[in-house]
């Protein structure tokens, strides 16, 4: 069989085109053989549902007259629906606060763990990462207990100082209550990714910088952080996608925070309620699709503004 190296050589020599053609056919087949099974799943569970959701979102079901084609009426309805708009505004606001908080904490932890090599540092690394192994639902259940007035420790702790405990499940502080749950859950995971990237940096760079008189702070900000910028962009994009789809934590905490978290607290919760509680699949699909549009716009805007850096795409 003709080898791939020959094929590559053939690319620069047009006179051996016949060999190249034969190899190509075989390569096409093998390539599609390897990619094909994933391709089938991709078409069945991503492309088809997306197309179907788009289709569904263009119809409306009425009590009288049945289902009718309404084009973008559902989207017009969504973008004038206070429930959807307040949910969307909440997740955007929450992203703007929670993502920087998580990334800064994760970056600080990764930089510390990259420069401290004691046994305790290694132990801390594992413990900080531990929440990633916990399902977000269980994380929310656990923090819900810690927040609760009945059996959480906050009442005792604040009681020691004669103060009333803050109610993280009340409407004033729920933002911070959720911020804490999310940070606890994800900061360790981001830390591990950044830490792995830092470990891949060639330490002779630090030596050279030290010779030139750079301090530890300068090494961190001028060498380490720029070199792991691709990893930072990667986790920023993933946390943005995840946060805009916020569902699990508020859905679980709403049992404990009755009255604070409504069924339209985030767009995803609202879509779930429309589709599965009210059987309004057309409007639910439209909300999901509108949310997907918001995610796309936010991610592309973000990638556009950071494209001068080497992006992971």
């Amino acid at each position: 069989m003709t080898s791939l190296t020959e094929k590559r050589a053939a690319r620069t020599q047009p006179e051996t085109r016949t060999i190249r053609g034969k190899v190509h056919l075989r390569e096409h087949l093998m390539g599609w053989l390897f990619v094909g099974p994933f391709g089938v799943v991709f078409l069945a569970f991503l492309i088809a549902p997306l197309a179907y959701a788009l289709y569904l979102s263009l119809f409306q079901k009425k009590l009288i007259g049945g289902t009718s084609f309404v084009l973008f009426d559902n989207y017009v309805k969504a973008f004038t629906d206070p429930s959807f708009l307040s949910g969307a505004w909440f997740v955007i606001r929450f992203s703007l606060v929670s993502i920087p908080v998580q990334i800064i904490i994760a970056l600080a932890m990764a930089l510390i763990l990259d420069s401290v090599t004691t046994l305790f540092a290694r132990f801390s690394r594992l413990m900080i990462f531990l929440p990633y192994a916990i399902p977000t639902v269980i994380g929310a259940v656990m923090w819900g207990f810690l927040y609760s007035r009945g059996f959480g420790p906050l009442t005792d702790i604040f009681g020691l100082f004669g103060a009333t405990a803050p109610d993280f499940l009340g409407s004033d502080l729920i933002f911070y209550g959720l911020l804490n749950v999310v940070t606890w859950q994800w900061a360790g995971y981001y830390m591990i990714i950044l830490y792995a990237a830092l470990q891949g940096v060639d330490p002779t760079l630090y030596e050279a910088a030290r010779m030139d008189g750079a301090g530890r702070w300068q090494i961190a900000t001028r060498i380490k952080i720029p070199l792991i910028a691709p990893a930072l962009i990667l986790i920023l994009v993933f946390s943005l996608i995840g946060t805009l789809q916020f569902f699990n934590e508020p859905q679980i905490l709403r049992y404990l925070a009755a009255g604070t978290i409504g069924s339209d607290f985030t767009p995803n919760m609202y879509a779930y309620q429309q589709a599965f509680s009210l059987a309004n699949f057309n409007y639910g699909s439209a909300i999901s699709f509108a949310l997907g549009g918001i995610v796309f716009i936010c991610v592309y805007a973000f990638l556009f503004f950071t494209r001068k850096r080497r992006s992971f795409l």
Binding site: A53, L56, S285, L291, G292, V295
Partner: peptide
């Protein structure tokens, strides 16, 4: 296309997949 799919919110697929 696969890279673009990284940005599709997974939960946006749940409702149409459910109906299918």
């Amino acid at each position: 296309v696969v890279l673009g799919a990284l940005m599709v919110p997974a939960t946006a697929l749940v409702i149409p997949t459910f109906i299918m």
